[in-house]
Design a protein around this nucleic acid. Structure first.
Lengths: 216, 216
DNA sequence: ACCTGAACACCGTTCAAGT
DNA sequence: ACCTGAACACCGTTCAAGT
């Protein structure tokens, strides 16, 4: 019933139109692949096939792109079903948050150091707080539980994504063989803090803190 | 017996000689006062009363100054007396680390995201690990304890210095009165997470995790 | 309406030159 | 030995101009 579109470009779309969506997606990819320092309007322009200045037609500044990325990420976070127990819900939040951070370590760093006080972020935080209130904790205790579990969560992810084992190195690192020889206990850290152990290690502290607040 | 120096400039030393020491001290002050983004060789030169390029006579690059600052901070950290119990020593480490981070929040952010793998940093980490070994934990468990307490420590300090309540704001923050009205539980966070409560809140999670590893 | 190009005030760093 | 100044290849962003 509908007319077939007559003129469709036969090969690869050469110069797609810019959209906020395209800019955000490409910005995150740029940060993932080349790091936050390489995220310049000029580099982003190159990836988008336009001049740096074209981006300003969609975002008033580079900072606004990062802001939009935060909301894109937090807004896309799955909210665990309310029928689950508070502890189960918190575990689900932790799981999604970790699942996001791992493939996006450089953006995760950025998001961690900035306030989540946009409308989207506030809504997201309120959902997490709800788990503590739902468990029957009085307001002050619920808030403390939220903070303490949050500390742990933040620190664990930072260490997994960019901490001792993964962050930018010192310019004069102690050579691995010297560490092995003189600081075997430090050398062991790298063998214990591997992807295969992260879940288990994380869970141990997480469970201890949940118990401290009588959840589970 | 020694000859009195004849010509001493009578008033304020106009242009002190540059030293690594002076450069490091002024760099930290610059970061503290104006933030890591304002820490440029040109701004540092202004504070030191020299051209940006003069600094390169003492440090091969800006990154080397930051590296030196990390070692200056970690090297200056007090090592708790070995006669104390492992838990007491860990508490002392936590206390000094927090005491440093609070007046230097912007540099603390930087240090957190980078690897502590210089000679000085490695020695420092080994001292912390020693507490867990000293408590009689087998190597794997000691390492896990070190990691888990470290996660918590890192996250707590980040939140105190630059997290939800203090980090750079979203460009479109939800207005305070809207948060109060629509998200009272989120609004409560700022009233609970204040300097007066930090020690107590921190201690609660810290103690729970120490207990999880049988220390104290 | 959408995109560009020149320009401005910044970066880190190199290099040749001053004292 | 120590410091400087011009220069290069980068930034974010403004503004006037192109289509």
């Amino acid at each position: 019933m509908t007319k077939a579109k007559p003129t469709q470009s036969t090969d690869a779309p050469k110069r797609q139109r810019l959209t906020r969506e395209r800019i955000e997606v490409e910005a995150l990819a740029l940060i993932d692949e080349e790091g936050i320092d390489a995220f310049s309007t000029r580099n982003l322009g190159k990836r988008l096939g336009c001049e740096a200045m074209s981006i300003y037609h969609y975002f008033p500044s580079k900072a606004h792109i990062l802001d939009a990325l935060v909301d894109r990420v937090l807004g896309g976070m799955p909210i665990p079903d309310k029928s689950l127990s508070p502890a189960q819900r918190l575990r689900a939040f932790a799981h999604s948050w970790r699942a996001f951070a791992r493939p996006h370590p450089r953006f995760y760093q950025w998001i961690t150091l900035h306030r989540g006080n946009s409308a989207t972020a506030t809504r997201f935080l309120d959902e997490i707080l709800d788990c503590f209130y739902d468990a029957g904790l009085p307001p002050e205790q619920a808030t403390r539980g939220f903070l303490i579990l949050g500390y742990y969560m933040t620190g664990a992810l930072l260490d997994e994504t960019s901490g001792y084992a993964r962050g930018p190195s010192s310019l004069a690192p102690l050579p691995a063989e010297v560490v092995e020889r003189d600081y075997p206990r430090v050398a062991l850290i790298e063998r214990v803090a591997t992807v295969e152990h992260f879940d288990e290690i994380f869970e141990r502290g997480f469970a201890a803190l949940l118990r401290e607040f009588g959840l589970e």
